[in-house]
């Protein structure tokens, strides 16, 4: 039981990884739109303090909403390289007062400030995306898009079919690579389970994956037609309704971002492209 895959209980019940967090009860369209607005607002500050404060608040809120540490850690780990790269390039490409020399390149004070700021912003936006992705229920998202974003019945059905395909992609990718590895001539692989990683074989595997998936798509489209998709006005079994909670979520998220920015500005810590002369 200990090693059951994340998101599904050991007996494979539909467990609603999505129903575990408080965020999952909110309307998915509102959640996505709020995320978009917040990350647009985050384009303004370039200092490290704003994203750092918001990152701390995000992690605290996520924990309060029962998002597991493992989800957060996985997010942080995958954004590490990006953050480091953003930091590295900004350290040495921004004009400003030199503070150090590394391998013939000049590190400037503006570079340190902006680089740390942008790196932290990457981590913050990534963490927000991970928290949201972990609480999105695809069926509710599509039902909500259908109701609030004028997505048609056929478009909604197509999106859900694509979600099924996406769900199967990782397993299918492994299956195709195993199947193709079995075609290799020569001695047994030295390490059992090691799949070949030559670019040639990876490209062939990707192509086969694409063909197999497109064939499945065509069959799914026929299935949807024979289930009456688009044959007239449809009903919705689990309707998406906007509630007060959705307004609170949007107001709190956007409000917090603005307030943090305003406070730091009063403290003289907020920097923008204009103030750093970038």
């Amino acid at each position: 039981m200990s090693a059951a895959p994340a998101g599904a209980s050991p007996d494979g019940r539909a467990a609603p990884r999505a129903r575990r967090t408080a965020l999952a009860r909110r309307d998915p369209t509102v959640v996505l739109a709020t995320l978009l607005v917040v990350s647009l607002l985050l384009l303004v500050p370039v200092d490290p303090w704003t994203p750092l404060t918001l990152l701390v608040l995000t992690v605290a809120a996520a924990r309060a909403a029962a998002v597991p540490w493992s989800t957060l850690a996985r997010g942080l780990a995958s954004f590490g390289p990006f953050a480091l790269s953003v930091l590295a390039v900004n350290l040495v490409t921004r004009p400003g007062a030199p503070v150090a020399r590394v391998a013939g390149l000049t590190v400037t004070d503006v570079g340190v400030l902006v680089g740390t700021g942008l790196a932290l912003r990457t981590v913050l936006v990534g963490t927000l995306a991970v928290v949201v992705a972990a609480s999105l229920d695809p069926v509710r998202l599509v039902a909500s898009l259908h109701r609030h974003a004028r997505l048609g019945a056929r478009g909604a059905a197509a999106l859900l079919a694509a979600h099924r395909v996406l769900e199967q992609l990782p397993a299918r990718w492994v299956a195709v690579r195993q199947a193709q590895a079995a075609r290799l001539p020569g001695p047994r692989p030295t390490r059992a389970g090691a799949l070949p990683t030559s670019p040639d074989l990876l490209v062939r595997a990707a192509f086969t994956l694409l063909v197999v998936t497109l064939r499945q798509a065509q069959q799914m489209a026929v299935t949807l037609e024979t289930r009456g998709v688009g044959s007239g006005p449809r009903t919705v079994h689990r309707p998406a309704r906007l509630g007060a909670g959705d307004a609170v979520l949007a107001a709190v998220a956007v409000g917090t971002t603005v307030v943090v920015g305003a406070v730091l500005w009063r403290l003289g810590l907020l920097e923008t492209w204009a103030s750093v002369g970038g």
Binding site: R227, G232, R234, T235
Partner: peptide, 12 residues
């Protein structure tokens, strides 16, 4: 199972 009913307009 529900989707076929939704698309055929069966009352929710």
């Amino acid at each position: 199972v529900a989707s076929g009913l939704e698309h055929r307009g069966v009352p929710a």
